[in-house]
Design a binder for these strands. Sequence first.
DNA 1: ATTGGAAAGTGGTCTGACCACTCATATTGA
DNA 2: TCAATATGAGTGGTCAGACCACTTTCCAAT
Lengths: 216, 216
Amino acid sequence: MNQSKRYLDIVRDLRDMIRQDNIRPGDRIPSERELAETLQVGRSTIREALRSLELLGLIETRRGEGTFLADHRNNMLVEVLSTFILQDNQSQKDVRETRQMHELAAIQAICADRTISQMGIWDGFRMRLSEEENGFQREDFVRELMVLSGNRLSLKIWVLLHKYSGNPYNGTVSKAEKERLLNILAAIEQQETDKAAQEFKTWSDGLLKERLRNDS
Amino acid sequence: MNQSKRYLDIVRDLRDMIRQDNIRPGDRIPSERELAETLQVGRSTIREALRSLELLGLIETRRGEGTFLADHRNNMLVEVLSTFILQDNQSQKDVRETRQMHELAAIQAICADRTISQMGIWDGFRMRLSEEENGFQREDFVRELMVLSGNRLSLKIWVLLHKYSGNPYNGTVSKAEKERLLNILAAIEQQETDKAAQEFKTWSDGLLKERLRNDS
DNA sequence: ATTGGAAAGTGGTCTGACCACTCATATTGA
DNA sequence: TCAATATGAGTGGTCAGACCACTTTCCAAT
């Protein structure tokens, strides 16, 4: 009963096709007319799917050349979300504050739970922070903390807020940042709640300031 | 020379139109044919812009009815709640903890804001706490704090969580309780953040214990 | 061998035509 | 009179075909 939303099927087909043919970022994908032919749909439907993926920053189109898998993380999404959905500044501020509220509460919950500190997961955490070949994603760091807090509702709310707050943790941690994150982990491990929360907040706020500077 | 990507202009036009006409989440936006007419572009171009925004979750289309601005705040909350109102104990615990997290964060936000303390609203607060003929509702006390925090998103989340956490603040404040609440207010007024949060938590946890005792 | 331009291929856009669905209204039947 | 039904207008969903603007390729004239 695939009633409406054929273009969503196309999005799915494209994803599968990209996976199956091992199309890598920067590579060209079949032309619109070709896709319409093989998928047995109209070209306009193909285009609706492609336009959606383009606004998401997943593909890149060049007139006269073709359509390509995006190689850079395009932050068009960020711009659209921040200027469209969250219409006024107060809403954006509310989302940011509420998200951070959940993050700080997670840290406090982790610190308050003795059993977590004993489980030796911090060593693994540190190891991945150091060894990750492609660089450690900031987002992964925070999400892991949210998971460790054990509050699944808070985690779900966080995921949604994070999605709507313009990728505040986009990017990988630099060398200097790594030191700060290790400090935060150490504070958590030692159950120094206030210090951990304070340092996390400083780090998080710093990222925000940087992002706001870049946007303006 | 933005020759290509007309649909991106449409996205921008739509944003401006929504702002200018003050279209609120859940409201209907003009039909595709109407937009094509007023913006002087083909309907397919309009559709490419709309499909993009739909994949982003910004709008919602219903065949035969029209296109609507997505109520993103409610949607995400509804999603969270619907997947979460499974009645196991862990969920209940998560709801309680998350709700209290928002309450404590509100108190901290109020304490951090000097302008609130100066506005003399605390006297009015105290007065109503003393004079209310039918007794002061606990729920009103907490809600007022949430409102004063100024974070509307947090307030919305709190209202829903409160509804789903078994009316923890049901009932009116007793004489003894009134003293405790006055203490909390005083601490907030003096911007003694930690003390205010601590006393509030004690009061809130006490109510919960009492309720759990009554239920079993 | 170099260069100029045509040809082919691609994305960008518009038009007009259906279809499927919703809703308000008019019509019909009891 | 009132309820059930039929209708028509309006809307999103999809398709086919036609151009346009642009890039790349390749072949022919120099």
